[in-house]
Simulated assay, not measured.
Amino acid sequence: MRNRSVVAAVAVAALTAVGLAVPAPAVAAPSRADLALRWAPIHHQDVDATGSHALGGRADYITRVDFDGDFNGRNNWDRAGASGTSLAAHAYYSVAETSTHWYITYLFFHPRDWTDHPFFETEHENDGEGLMLAVERDGSEYGVLRAAVTVAHTNFYSYMPAGSSWSSGRENVDGTLNLAASPHDSFQHPVTAQQAQGHGLKAHPQYAINGDGIVYYPSTVAETPSSGNDRDVRYQLVDIFAPGGLWAQRNNPDLFAHLGTFAGDASGGCGVGTFACGVNSANAPWGWDDGDDLPGRGQIATDPAKLSAEYFTIPGGLSRAYTYNPYASEAAALNAAARTAPRVVD
């Protein structure tokens, strides 16, 4: 049998000799981990060091759910302030695919949602907010970014990068999704930002650093900020579906109080000196919900094609048939449970 490279070379030469165009080689699809890393946000985190609940600013650092070495959601408030505890920077991701688009969901986790106000504001153990990016599969290696939907407490906000072919749909677009270069790779990344204390997430600069803050850059390593005012910290992505990881723990009652809602209690000082401490008050992506919008609870992650079709007008439409959706094996059960699950107010 002749070597395939030799056969290919002969074929190209023959086409060239008769003046026919040589077809471009097919672009191999990137791994899902590479795709998530390529589009992961440059993330601005505002930091507040006011009061004892701030931990000198550390309460605003992003980290792993199991930063303290266990998957117990009810000890995270306490252990975030423990001596020697690592708050190395991580974020979680999942990828769903159709023939027309990739959908990448990112979760940024904080052990505390906190406040330094004694009146009218609550705090709670654990905090999970994030975003979904819609990327069109245009034949290039990583596709083209078309839109984002971010999670700020119990509301979703939609954005598009400049030049996107998408436009407003059932929901109005809330602004432009800016892109910026990273010093750690050769790509332009979307830029997002989170508030201090409550950690609502929007496209930058709708939220922005106000004084102290951290700029996190996507990477394959996890760094810990040198202080609450560090403008170059690399964060590592963690697959939600990694063996033994976040999705594998979805029925662990120490971590989840019910479908997609992190377990959290009022121990360890949460609520002391403030209006109140909420219990079981933060969500994973399959629990995110904007109750005023049509897509159901969690569908920003579990059925992002549906959410995209509702939120945006998309020239040429999009496929709703998933070629890969890691949530799909339990999608029916998730949707049924979401209809009866308590709504979590973050």
Rank of each mutant, 00 (worst) to 15 (best):
V95D: 07
N72W: 02
V65P: 04
H44P: 00
G56T: 12
L107I: 03
H43P: 01
L37E: 08
T50H: 09
A59I: 00
D68Y: 00
F71N: 13
Y61T: 06
T50R: 14
H53T: 02
A40W: 12
V47R: 13
G56P: 11
T63L: 01
T85P: 01
L87W: 12
V65W: 12
L35G: 03
V65R: 13
I104A: 05
E97M: 01
A33S: 15
W39N: 10
H101I: 05
D48S: 15
F71G: 06
V95P: 02
A36C: 05
A40C: 10
H101Y: 15
G56Q: 11
L55R: 14
T100V: 02
A89K: 03
A89H: 06
H43A: 04
L35H: 06
F67Q: 06
V95C: 08
R74G: 12
H43L: 15
E97F: 00
L107D: 08
S99M: 02
A82K: 14
G69A: 02
R64W: 00
Y103T: 07
L55F: 14
N76I: 06
A33N: 12
A89M: 01
I42T: 03
D66V: 01
R74E: 14
G57D: 11
D34L: 07
N72D: 15
S86C: 07
H44T: 00
G73P: 03
T105R: 10
S99N: 14
L87I: 09
F67A: 04
V95Y: 09
W102A: 10
T98G: 04
W39T: 11
N72R: 13
S99R: 13
T50W: 05
G57N: 13
R64G: 01
V47H: 11
I42S: 01
W102E: 09
Y93Q: 09
N76S: 12
A40F: 12
S83H: 07
G57W: 08
F108T: 00
A40V: 05
L87E: 12
A59L: 04
Y92L: 08
Q45P: 00
S52I: 10
G73W: 09
F71A: 13
A40I: 08
R74I: 07
H44D: 03
R38A: 10
D46V: 05
A91F: 02
Y92P: 09
W102C: 06
I104Y: 08
A54W: 12
T63F: 02
Y93V: 08
D70G: 11
Y93N: 09
T100F: 05
D46I: 09
Y93H: 08
D78R: 15
S83K: 12
Y93M: 08
V65I: 15
G84H: 03
D48E: 11
G51R: 11
T85N: 10
Y92S: 11
G51K: 10
F108L: 15
G57C: 07
V95A: 04
T100R: 08
T105S: 13
A91V: 02
D66N: 15
D34P: 11
N76R: 15
D70R: 05
A82D: 14
A36T: 05
I42W: 06
